[in-house]
Amino acid sequence: MNSQEKGRAYWRANLKLSAVLLAIWFTVSFGFGVLLVEPLNRIDFFGFPFGFWWAQQGSIYVFIVLIFVYAFAMRRLDRKYDVDEREG
């Protein structure tokens, strides 16, 4: 691959990763916490109605994990496509 192709492949990989993570972001907050909250509330989760737990606790924990997964995966992509920063 020449550097232009590399750059394009890097960007495609980045978009794919971001799309997957944003789909999870949407599912846990707008999906579980808003749209599906009523059916999920029939399930008991450690003393919480499950939908309520997603809205007030669970979604926030998942958000944190998503950002760290992104930071970690992107660093690997940076190296794989040789576009990482040279540590100064």
Partner: peptide, 21 residues
């Protein structure tokens, strides 16, 4: 009660957008 969730999700979920986009 539950309606307060908009602030909890809204003021944290934005950081995912910020970090990724």
């Amino acid at each position: 009660g539950y309606d307060g969730s908009v602030y909890l999700m809204g003021w944290t979920g934005g950081y995912v957008l910020l970090a990724l986009l």
